[in-house]
Computed example of a mutant assay.
Amino acid sequence: MELYLDTADIEAVQYFRDVFPLAGVTTNPSIVAASGQNLHTLLSQLREQLGKSPLLFAQVLARTAASMVTEARYLRSIDENLVVKIPVTAEGLTAMKRLVKEEIPVLGTAVYSSAQGLLAAMAGAQYIAPYVNRLDTLSGNGTETVAELHQLLQLHAPQTKILAASFKNSRQVMDCLMSGAQAVTVSPDVARQLITSPATDAALDQFEADWSKAYQSLHL
């Protein structure tokens, strides 16, 4: 399983790289815009925090295939270990096929159906990113879409991985992993939900209280 952090927050990356077996960081145009930083500078800073091996994802902004390819090349010039996120549209699929021929790794993003995901995989995408919570919000079922996409990929494009995205809570994350997603990307807030439980804190408080009562100390 690959766990990614969906953020442009350098401090969050610094924190969670020490907590999780972090596979890398994903970004999108909205995340980059919210950071207020220059794209080149931001991606360079994220790479510095991640080290050489973890993957870094950035997305094109263009809407036509030719411009997507141009922007993808630019993104790869910033970071040689970057995976380019391409929206799964007709133009996006055309761009993916061209980029794959250039050996530029691609993630098919903004996926709202298993059909979109399968088509992106057939175009050569290394990863597919279904938007789980956004599907739920639109009266769909994000987890069921992930499960259906997993089955389709196993049958027709086993080389492509599902990198599920757009989560509101940690339960959605676990449901998607149970449904076949090989990777997930989560915001810092959802990442904290994965490792935080009031019951755990209560148990630790009780251990400390019992130990202190017996030994008048909080040290072993």
Rank of each mutant, 00 (worst) to 15 (best):
116 Q>Y: 05
20 F>E: 09
10 I>V: 15
31 I>S: 04
166 S>Q: 08
176 C>Q: 01
171 R>Y: 12
217 S>M: 06
209 A>N: 14
38 N>K: 11
1 M>T: 15
218 L>N: 14
197 S>C: 09
200 T>Y: 15
114 S>T: 10
99 L>Q: 00
105 P>W: 01
121 A>R: 02
145 T>D: 00
196 T>L: 10
68 M>V: 05
26 T>C: 11
66 A>G: 06
67 S>F: 02
30 S>I: 11
189 D>M: 12
176 C>S: 05
66 A>Y: 05
36 G>D: 05
91 E>P: 04
34 A>V: 09
96 M>F: 02
61 L>M: 09
74 Y>R: 15
131 Y>L: 08
138 L>H: 14
145 T>C: 12
97 K>M: 09
93 L>K: 03
169 N>R: 07
174 M>H: 13
73 R>I: 07
20 F>H: 07
167 F>V: 00
176 C>D: 05
25 V>Q: 06
71 E>T: 10
16 F>G: 01
93 L>A: 02
62 A>F: 06
66 A>M: 04
198 P>W: 09
74 Y>E: 12
23 A>D: 06
92 G>M: 02
194 L>D: 11
152 L>D: 09
146 V>I: 14
39 L>A: 13
148 E>F: 03
159 Q>D: 11
41 T>M: 10
203 A>W: 09
101 K>P: 00
168 K>Y: 13
63 R>T: 13
139 S>E: 13
53 S>A: 14
201 D>W: 07
105 P>Q: 13
23 A>Q: 08
104 I>F: 07
215 Y>M: 14
101 K>C: 05
191 A>L: 05
111 V>D: 00
22 L>K: 11
52 K>P: 10
198 P>L: 08
84 V>P: 01
132 V>F: 01
207 F>A: 12
218 L>H: 14
49 Q>M: 14
188 P>N: 11
145 T>W: 01
85 K>R: 10
18 D>H: 14
173 V>T: 04
74 Y>C: 04
147 A>G: 02
23 A>K: 15
48 E>H: 14
8 A>F: 01
157 A>E: 10
187 S>T: 15
21 P>H: 14
205 D>S: 12
166 S>Y: 00
201 D>V: 12
59 Q>G: 04
100 V>Y: 04
85 K>P: 03
21 P>M: 12
47 R>W: 06
